[in-house]
Amino acid sequence: MSTTVSTDNPDDPIAYFLEDLTYHGKTERTRDAYGRVLRRFEAFLADPDRNPSGDALTPAEATHRDCMAWVHTLRGTVTDSTIASYAAYLHRFYAYMTQVGVFESNPMTLVVEELDETIEKDPTRREISIDQMRSFVSDIHHPLDQALIVTLLKTGMRVGELCNLDLRDLALDDNEVETAFDGSPRPQLATRPNSLYVDSEPAVGERVNGEERTASNKRKRATIIPVDEELQRVLKRWLAIRPDSLSPAEPLFVYTTGEWGQRLTPRAVRTVVTEHAEAAGWYDTGGDAADNVTPHYFRHFFTTHLRDRTGDRGVVKYLRGDVADDIIDTYTHNWGGQVRATYDANIYSILR
Rank of each mutant, 00 (worst) to 15 (best):
S6F: 11
K26W: 00
R31E: 09
Y34I: 02
Y34K: 06
R36C: 06
V37F: 01
R40N: 12
F41I: 03
A43Y: 01
D49I: 11
R50V: 10
S53E: 05
G54R: 11
D55Y: 14
L57I: 10
R65K: 15
D66R: 06
M68I: 11
A69W: 11
T79F: 09
D80C: 09
D80F: 09
Y86R: 10
Y86T: 09
A88H: 11
H91D: 14
Y96T: 12
T98I: 02
Q99S: 13
V102W: 02
N106G: 06
P107W: 06
V111S: 02
T118W: 11
E120K: 13
D131N: 14
D131L: 13
V137I: 15
S138C: 09
S138Y: 08
I140R: 00
H141C: 01
D145A: 12
A147M: 07
V150P: 07
L152E: 01
V159G: 01
N164S: 05
L167Q: 10
L170W: 04
T179P: 00
A180L: 12
N194I: 01
A203D: 09
A203Y: 03
S216F: 02
K218R: 11
R221Y: 11
D228V: 03
E229I: 12
S245T: 12
P248T: 07
A249G: 07
E250P: 02
Y255P: 04
T257P: 03
W260L: 14
G261R: 07
P266E: 09
T271Q: 14
V273M: 08
G286M: 08
G286N: 07
A290K: 12
V293N: 07
H300L: 07
F302D: 04
T303R: 13
T303E: 12
T304C: 08
L306K: 07
R307T: 14
V316C: 03
L319V: 07
R320S: 06
V323T: 15
I327M: 14
I327H: 13
Y343I: 08
A345F: 07
N346W: 08
I347H: 04
I347K: 05
